[in-house]
Design a protein around this nucleic acid. Structure first.
Lengths: 157, 157
DNA sequence: TTACGTGCAAAATTTTTGCCCTCCA
DNA sequence: TGGAGGGCAAAAATTTTGCACGTAA
């Protein structure tokens, strides 16, 4: 918890030391390995939202010698390549979504539940707002919403 | 990484063991303590988005004996009480926002930068969509957007 | 043969908790 | 005087990394 607090640095290594995606990785794509294929398929076949630990458990049935570190590295690579989507969660580990069709997520801050929203969003409005606010332009296909689901809301009353 | 994977359970303790907010805490409010006041003021005076470690550093100037655990507990209590807002971040610790005026956040997935968007959102549209999708109703005043900021986007090309 | 990917274990980071003590209501 | 809050240290949960070794181009 020392110096590594500044975001937005352009160093080759990110805060926790993970390597930034490079031209090569983007222009030439990923190497397709057994492990990455298995991780990708697992996320896609999860038909929903799955976390790294669960991916690890499932992939191990196919590749018993795969390590959790490799699963994390594969998820990161697939995320950077745009093949899967990472959903940040205030109440637990990151979740991964293999559904690349346009849809949004609504995430419960309290229980972590994630639901898909198949809604046509006024993205142009949002992008205009974003550029008015400092994100001079946003490159994104997905937006996550954080709220409180009804179950948790009523549990609080 | 064992059994505690099921979200959405209604147990008194959440996944990581943190206590759920209770009726009492909500109906009677929090006890106002030096520590909680200091944490709240620090978040409010940060005029932006501040993480727990930074809150700890700053609060220690006033209360040198406060512990990081207490800061986390205070932030959680203030968050549950609705006095501050917790911003989840894919690239670092959670950030806290003491600005309760209606505004949204746009968060860079890559560098963690958070910007405010002072935009009037079509909330009714969003809520209608949410209820069509399973979140039968959402109780929320804020929504976070996750995207890639221009800096990071251009760094990837 | 060189760069990339992997397995493994260890470390780093962030957050939560157990325990005991204090203090106010 | 009993229960909530706090200090401290330890643990838990999640994610990343160092290193040695393959492997495929």
């Amino acid at each position: 918890m020392a110096e590594s607090r500044e975001k937005n640095d352009n160093s080759y290594y990110t805060r926790r030391g993970n390597r930034r995606s490079t031209d090569m990785e983007h222009d030439q794509g990923l190497q397709i390995t057994q492990q990455r294929q298995a991780v990708l398929r697992t996320v896609q076949q999860a038909c929903g939202h799955i976390d790294a630990g669960e991916v690890y458990q499932r992939v191990r049935r196919l590749l018993p010698r795969i390590s959790l570190g490799t699963v994390y590295r594969a998820l990161g690579a697939l995320r950077d390549a745009g093949l899967i989507y990472e959903i940040v969660n205030s109440s637990g580990p990151a979740l991964y979504d293999g559904n690349l069709n346009a849809h949004q997520h609504i995430i419960c801050r309290s229980c972590g539940k994630v639901e898909d929203m198949d809604v046509e969003l006024p993205v142009t409005l949002l992008e205009r707002s974003a550029s008015a606010s400092g994100f001079s332009s946003i490159e994104q296909s997905r937006i996550d919403f954080h709220g409180i689901c009804q179950e948790c809301a009523s549990a609080r009353n």
